[in-house]
Design a protein around this nucleic acid. Structure first.
Lengths: 326, 326
DNA sequence: CTGAAAGCGCTAACAT
DNA sequence: ATGTTAGCGCTTTCAG
């Protein structure tokens, strides 16, 4: 029978293994030289004692921090209330778990990027993951976190990034629409300040220009509600529109809903496409572009966790998913 | 000129304030006695220096841990890949941020609840949030985490819980169906091991019994894919079914999709209801029951953060949302 | 009410 | 290759 289960410390492991704390530390942290026998004995002891290193102590002595901060830029704190962000945070937490690192998420006001400094100055912050990154944010990454920061979206010389080929994805969608015979293609854009959204918009314009077609843009913000309104605006301004490119699935779903409410058939009268391939896109048979958010978040989180010199920018492909809405 | 911004320590604050570290600590942690003047001077100094306490050091000395563990029970690690879980994790992270606490999420195999012990034995774990809680899990909460644990779902004498009134919500849905004239009401249930799901099933049976109607149950698992298959099964076994109660929105959406594919009109031929009111339920005009997941997660997280004697169980209401599918 | 002193558990020089 | 020795920044007895 084991006694009142006081969690084992490194000291305990060392004693049981018959070595000094330092040696035990070296073995367990896999740093410095250690003899095979020492390694063996320490490992066994640690195992037997169910030793779990104390993250706080480790972080303290290394001055390293105990949590990864996911900093999300946006107009309002409401940006945190988004399924994409939820997924990024949650995935990051999964990736961090084995490292004994927790995750925190905070909003950084678009018009007050300096807030990032306040947040990142906390010594508890071990790493930084920027989301919806802007240039201003990139410049504000504190020196202490250099090499411990990654960005989802744009990056910089100092901050590696993982990104989606939004341009390519959007171009593929628009080309698909064109191939399917659509010639009066409108787009409900994403927020202008978001680089990735503007890349989509540019791709849309590019393809239309190539094809000699007119541009029909309405401003959106990724929400379904805005998609609804945008659908009406599009049909009001250009009644003969035969396709609407949504900048997000939510937008597209809003568009479709409004269209159907107004008696417009989708895709017969107007084809509609989304962007992201959220779970319900398949249920609603939405034609869209799929992005491996999980893999992206994983890649980004790994960049900040594994000090290794990461490639400056990793681009994940956007892949067209043909379903019924277009 | 300020020098290389070395983050201020308590020592610095104390020096500037002209007091000892102990006093500074007492003021900042708001523990023990301190004179108003001391308080004033320490506060000012801390402010001027932009002092942020080092969470790791604090946790180390208090033996308190630096992160909140969200432990999710489920059959496979895949449970973590769910938008509901994402939302809980993300919300928890938001609530924890001001406390300097990070969040970790881990899967606990349904058939190996003992894993919880391994996870919770980590001294880095400051608190525990159980999700999809089972009785077995409740019994395994380590003593160290007593008073620092909360559960979403069932609780126990030692573990406060926040829960949804699944029974009431489901009953309301079934009654609505009845009122609308439906008499051959089937249900696609949730996983049987989940207490909250079984409460829904029981409520469904209860209302039907009261009304003298026959029960028509098909096993589901909250997924849309299973919903699709279940829809076919229902119509195969009971072709005259005029309503299907889904145990989740995803299930319901799957059911609807399959039904329409098979040429069955919704709601004209068969009414369909969901459960949860996920964002897309409104877009797809799904009649469902709404649950404040955010508020629930917030309440649960607060319970573990604020040591205060929490009420043993907080029940959040489930409210019927009438839309077009039923 | 305040200060001095003793660690929390771990790592990283520095000596062997 | 291993042990010894200092702390990391903070809280908390214990004496004043």
């Amino acid at each position: 029978m084991t006694m009142a289960h006081r969690p084992a410390t490194l000291e305990d492991v060392a004693r049981v293994a018959g070595v000094s704390r330092s040696t035990a530390s070296r073995v367990l942290a896999d740093s410095g030289f250690t003899s095979p026998i020492a390694r063996e004995r320490v490992r066994t002891a640690a195992d037997r004692l169910g030793y779990v290193p104390n993250a706080a102590a480790r972080a303290l002595v290394r001055g390293a921090g105990v949590r990864l901060l996911v900093a999300v830029a946006g107009a309002t704190p409401g940006v945190l209330d988004d399924s994409y962000i939820h997924q990024v945070v949650s995935t990051t937490a999964q990736v961090c778990a084995p490292y004994g690192l927790g995750v925190t998420v905070e909003w950084v006001p678009l018009d007050e990027p300096g807030q990032l400094t306040r947040l990142a100055d906390d010594r508890g912050v071990a790493g930084l993951l920027l989301v919806n990154t802007t240039e201003a944010l990139l410049d504000l990454v504190p020196r202490r976190l250099r090499g411990r920061t990654a960005s989802i979206g744009i990056g910089s010389a100092a901050v590696p990034s993982v990104d989606i080929d939004n341009g390519g994805g959007t171009a593929a969608i628009v080309r698909h629409l064109y191939t399917a015979g659509r010639r009066r293609i409108a787009m409900v854009t994403g927020p202008a300040w978001l680089t990735c959204a503007s890349r989509s918009t540019e791709a849309y314009r590019g393809v239309l220009r190539e094809a000699g077609l007119p541009v029909r843009e309405v401003a959106g913000d990724f929400t379904a509600a805005r998609g609804r309104a945008a659908a009406q605006e599009v049909l009001h301004r250009w009644p003969d529109t035969d396709a609407i490119v949504g900048s997000s699935d939510a937008t597209a779903l809003g568009v479709i809903d409004q269209l159907r409410t107004d008696g417009v058939r989708v895709p017969a009268d107007v084809a509609v496409t989304g962007f992201d391939d959220i779970p319900l896109a398949s249920v609603t048979a939405l034609t869209t572009a799929s992005h491996p958010v999980r893999r992206i978040a994983k890649a980004a989180a790994s960049m900040v966790l594994e000090q290794r010199s990461a490639p400056p920018v990793t681009v994940f492909p956007s892949s067209l998913v043909l379903r019924e809405s277009a």
